[in-house]
C-alpha cells in the first residue's frame, strides 16, 4: 500500500494542474491555429478549409498593420517614461523614510484599482469637450486637444492610463532589487569619494539590469495584448478603436473580427500571429537575460 502510494500519489498531485491546463490553456491555443485555416463563420454549418488564405488576407490588411502599429506605439509611449519614473521613485523610496510602508502603499494604490473603472475615469479626464486635462491645458494657454480623434493624442491618453497603473508597481519591484545590492559596494565607493549621482549611475543602475530587463519583458508581453484601455477609452465607442481605427490595438481587432464580424477563422489568424510575436519577444528576452546574468 505504502509503496503504491509513494509511486502513484505524486502524479495524482500534479495531475489536476496538467489536465486542466491542457484543457483550458494549451488546447484552445493550438486549436486556434487549426481554426485559422478555415473559412469559419459563427453559426455556419460547414466551415470550409482554405489553407493559409486567412493569413494571406491578413498580411494585406491595412487595418491589421494599423493595429500592430498602434499597439507598438502605445507600448513605447507607456513603457519608456514608465520605467524612467519607476527607477526615480524607487530610488526615493530607498531613502530612509519615515512611515516607509505607508509610502509604498501609496505608490501601489493604482495597481489595485479596477482597470475597467479607471479606464472609464480616464476617458472622462481626457474628454475632448469638458475633460479636465483640456481645461488644465487651457489655463496654461494650450489649445484643447482632441484626445479621441487624433492618432498621437489618443495614444498618449491610453499610454497615460498604463503608466498611471503600473509605474508604482514597477517602482516597488525595482526597489526590492535595489535593496538586494550589498551595502559594502556603496561604502567602498563612498570611501573613494564618489558622489551620490555617480554612485547611482555607476553602481545602482548596472546592478539593476536583470530586474529592469524582467520589468521590460513582462510589460512587453502585457503591452502587446492591451485591450481594456482602447476598448473603453471612448464612451459608446464600440470595438473599432475610434472612427478611423486610430487607437485600435491587435487584441481589439481580434475581438472585433471574432465577436462582431463573426469571422472566427480570420480572428484566429490574428490571434495566432500575435501569439507568435509574444513568444518571439519572450524567447528573445530569455537569451538577453541569460547573457546579462552571466
Amino acid at each position: 500500500m505504502s509503496n503504491v502510494d509513494a509511486k502513484i500519489s505524486p502524479y495524482l498531485f500534479v495531475a489536476p494542474f496538467f489536465v486542466l491546463f491542457a484543457a483550458v490553456g494549451l488546447f484552445p491555443l493550438l486549436y486556434t491555429a487549426y481554426v485559422s485555416l478555415f473559412d469559419w463563420e459563427v453559426g455556419a454549418d460547414e466551415p470550409g478549409f482554405i489553407g493559409l488564405e486567412n493569413y494571406r488576407t491578413l498580411f494585406e490588411d491595412d487595418q491589421f498593420w494599423n493595429a500592430l502599429f498602434n499597439t507598438f506605439s502605445i507600448f513605447v509611449l507607456s513603457s519608456v517614461p514608465q520605467i524612467v519614473i519607476a527607477v526615480v521613485i524607487a530610488a526615493l523610496l530607498n531613502a530612509n523614510l519615515r512611515a516607509r510602508t505607508g509610502w509604498r502603499m501609496g505608490v501601489l494604490l493604482p495597481y489595485v484599482a479596477s482597470l475597467v473603472a479607471l479606464t472609464i475615469i480616464f476617458g472622462n479626464l481626457f474628454g475632448p469637450q469638458y475633460g479636465l486635462v483640456n481645461d488644465v491645458l487651457g489655463i496654461i494657454g494650450i489649445d484643447p486637444i482632441d484626445w479621441q480623434a487624433s492618432t498621437f493624442g489618443s495614444h498618449v491618453a491610453i499610454a497615460s492610463m498604463v503608466n498611471w497603473r503600473w509605474t508604482g508597481y514597477n517602482a516597488l519591484i525595482i526597489l526590492a532589487a535595489m535593496q538586494a545590492i550589498p551595502r559594502d559596494v556603496y561604502e567602498a565607493a563612498l570611501v573613494d569619494g564618489a558622489s551620490a549621482l555617480r554612485r547611482f549611475f555607476s553602481i545602482t543602475l548596472p546592478m539593476l539590469k536583470p530586474t529592469l530587463i524582467f520589468v521590460i519583458v513582462t510589460s512587453t508581453i502585457g503591452g502587446l495584448q492591451i485591450f481594456t484601455e482602447p476598448k473603453l477609452f471612448e464612451p459608446s465607442g464600440g470595438s473599432g478603436g475610434g472612427t478611423e481605427h486610430q487607437y485600435q490595438t491587435v487584441v481589439l481587432y481580434l475581438y472585433q473580427s471574432a465577436f462582431q464580424g463573426l469571422d472566427l477563422g480570420y480572428a484566429s489568424a490574428i490571434a495566432w500571429v500575435l501569439f507568435l510575436i509574444v513568444i518571439a519577444v519572450a524567447g528573445l528576452n530569455f537569451f538577453i537575460t541569460r547573457r546579462a546574468v552571466r
Partner: peptide
C-alpha cells in the same frame, strides 16, 4: 519530475488569453 516542472516554467510566458476563440466555441 524535472521535465514536467520545466514544462510549467516554459508555460509561464504563454499568453493563454489568445485562445479565447476555441474557448468561446466550447
Amino acid at each position: 519530475r524535472g521535465v514536467l516542472f520545466l514544462f510549467v516554467v516554459a508555460t509561464l510566458a504563454v499568453p493563454t488569453q489568445l485562445g479565447i476563440i476555441p474557448l468561446y466555441m466550447a
